[in-house]
Design a protein around this nucleic acid. Structure first.
Length: 614
DNA sequence: GCAAGGTC
């Protein structure tokens, strides 16, 4: 008998189905000489400090550098404290007995770094010695599965991938556990002041933005606006330059040749620029883009959206939600027409679905190379029936986005008219000629510039028009808005963009800060620690959060670039570079940051006391 | 009482 082990039950079920295995047992499915079993994500984690003899939170324990890390069963919180998760224990027993009986293991955890780690931790924890081969697929269509099984790879091909995963895991433990204890101890050991490679740069981003906004001094400036008339149609144009002083604007205003000042045809058309613009449909959703849309449209937190999606996934209504890819492969694309046909009766999108069936589908979201462990989120096409309102809302976002993504481009005509009357003025207009994908939701662009005229009259270069009105507009510069969950999620994904080093930037883009599966929980962690709180939609730092930020802001642990540097090294390890060197560097850094924090944290004591009083 | 990573 051969054992196939998947990362999660849904994948094991899919694999079993393709093989025609259908005997359901407790914790696995059997048939055709195979047993299909599963994990639930990470069943094992690096053991906590006390398992190495580091009891309590004491300065003399620091830095904690276990000679050899141990694995422990994932814990759950109960009234009696943290205990081994009974469901995990049970499943590990199932896996152990299957591993004991089998002749070979086929590793079918997700095709990525963490998927490899999930299997290896189980394999080593159970002290298993059976041979294993690797299934490496990124979609679960029957064809992809069959192909994958015909091309199983030697298990050892992924040893270096495991090495990189293992380093990631241990490094996060070393830096996170030691920095957390060091800061907490030096601040009086009264509260948990957690720090970590991901949470601390995230906190720093929130604090930085908050301080920028708080210290922002708005600058007043002036523009001159004129109103023109062509064939009874009025339109507005704005001065191309801004004025810092009101007097300057008034001088310019006086020079405008408007009707009221006795000037007919005082607006000279200096230039007319007309352009046709094609706006491609948006990409399919990954988890992050869905969380952003749900936050914008419905105010759901990242965590709520993930919960709702998980629910829809367990009801088999949507595909795997914790994906970081906004693309599908050609195999999945082949199933899309059939999928779309399931929604021709949808109350909101039925008509558009119908229309799509008769047109060539847009392939912008089709790119097998950009599919990582999982493809973009799609509806499965299963009958949904009645859903609670929040589930319905998120489900509709998934369905609607699918319809949009395969829809035609939106065709727009933009016009830019430059008018001279004293100085230059400009009027912009955009007319949608063919809505294409924009007809799916039919909602207006949220950040449409208010200067835009919907339609502009037809004018020709050289012509002179009446100016029917003129005025001075007073405006002021605005600070960047505080982060909300939508903008923070986006920032976490792309924080690599401002990094100079090309290679570093690439590594960041691939990973961002955190992963799709963990970003919601990072935000929740910062809230649980009382570092930040929600104020309406915004994420605002507390005094405690600002205090921690002040202590760590210039240290590496608060920089998003730390993740980029690690990713670069981990990628080198994956392609065969030495593990030893990286581990030594991490140990060194652990010692340094621990020492620094043991000193620096004392300044936090006062803030913590004040918090208690308040 | 701690990290970040995965998932029910």
């Amino acid at each position: 008998m051969k054992v196939v082990i998947a990362e999660k039950p849904s994948v094991a079920r899919e694999l079993a189905k393709v093989f025609g295995a259908n005997q359901k047992k407790v914790g696995y499915i059997e048939g055709k000489g195979y047993s299909f079993t599963w994990a639930f994500g990470h069943l094992l984690q690096l053991a906590p400090p006390q398992d190495y003899g580091f009891y309590g939170w004491k300065q003399q324990n620091l830095p904690m550098l276990p000679a050899k890390f141990k694995l422990a069963i994932r814990k759950v919180k109960t009234k009696e404290g943290m205990v081994d998760d009974p469901a995990v224990k049970k499943q590990l027993d199932v896996i152990k007995s299957l591993f004991d009986e089998c002749t070979e293991i086929i590793v079918a955890t997700d095709a990525g770094r963490e998927g490899e780690l999930i299997f290896r931790y189980i394999y080593y924890y159970l002290k298993c010695k059976k041979p294993f081969r690797r299934l490496w697929i990124s979609s679960q269509t029957d064809e992809a599965i069959k192909n994958g099984f015909r091309n199983l790879k030697p298990g050892t091909d992924y040893d270096t991938l495991f090495n990189s995963a293992h380093c990631r895991s241990e490094s996060d433990w070393l830096v996170g556990m030691n920095a957390t204890q060091a800061l907490s101890i030096s601040a009086g050991n009264k509260a948990v002041l957690s720090l970590g490679r991901v949470q601390t740069p995230t906190l720093a981003m929130i604090c930085q933005r908050y301080l920028e906004t708080k210290d922002f001094v708005p600058q007043i400036y002036y523009q001159v606006a004129i109103q023109l008339k062509k064939d009874e149609q009025l339109f507005r144009a704005i001065s191309t330059v801004n004025f810092e002083e009101k007097e300057k604007a008034e001088t310019v205003l006086a020079q405008v040749l408007d009707l009221a000042s006795g000037n007919q045809k005082g607006g000279h058309i200096k230039d007319v620029e007309a352009k046709a613009k094609k706006e491609p449909p948006p990409l399919l959703h990954d988890l992050s883009s869905l969380q952003q849309e749900a936050n914008r449209k419905k105010g759901y937190t990242a965590d709520q959206t993930l919960g709702i999606l998980q629910n829809l996934y367990e009801s088999k209504l949507v595909t795997y939600p914790r994906t970081g890819s906004r693309f599908i492969g050609d195999d999945v694309f082949a199933t899309v027409p059939d999928l779309i046909s399931k929604f021709t009766n949808h109350p909101l999108f039925g008509k558009q679905a119908e229309e799509l069936l008769n047109t060539k589908l847009n392939k912008r979201s089709v790119n097998a190379k950009k599919v990582t462990d999982h493809h973009a989120v799609l509806p499965t096409g299963e009958y949904a029936g009645h859903l609670s309102s929040d589930r319905q809302a998120v489900y509709d976002m998934v369905v609607g986005r699918m319809i949009e993504a395969f829809h035609k481009e939106c065709l727009k005509a933009t016009t830019k008219i430059t008018i001279t009357s004293g100085i230059d003025f400009v009027a912009n207009g955009t007319v949608i000629q063919s809505a294409g994908w924009r007809s799916v939701f039919n909602d207006n662009d949220e950040e449409k510039k208010d200067e835009d005229n919907a339609t502009l009259p037809k004018v020709i270069k050289g012509e002179d028009l009446d100016i029917t009105n003129k005025a001075i507009l007073q405006k002021q510069t605005k600070p960047k808005p505080l982060f909300n969950e939508a903008t923070l999620l986006k920032a976490l994904e792309t924080c690599g963009k401002d990094i100079e080093d090309e290679e570093l930037r690439y590594a960041m883009k691939e990973s961002g800060l955190g992963t799709p599966a963990t970003r919601a929980s990072i935000i929740e962690t910062l809230i649980k620690r009382e570092y930040i709180f929600r104020e309406k939609k915004n994420l605002v730092p507390s005094n405690k959060g600002l205090g921690v930020y002040e202590v760590v802001k210039d240290k590496k642990i608060a920089q998003a670039e730390l993740t980029g540097q690690w990713e670069k090294r981990l990628e080198e390890i994956r392609t065969g570079a030495s593990v030893k060197e990286f581990k030594a560097e991490i140990a060194d850094y652990t010692k340094t940051i621990t020492q620094e924090l043991l000193v620096a944290g004392s300044g936090l004591m006062q803030i913590l006391k004040e918090e208690k009083v308040a």
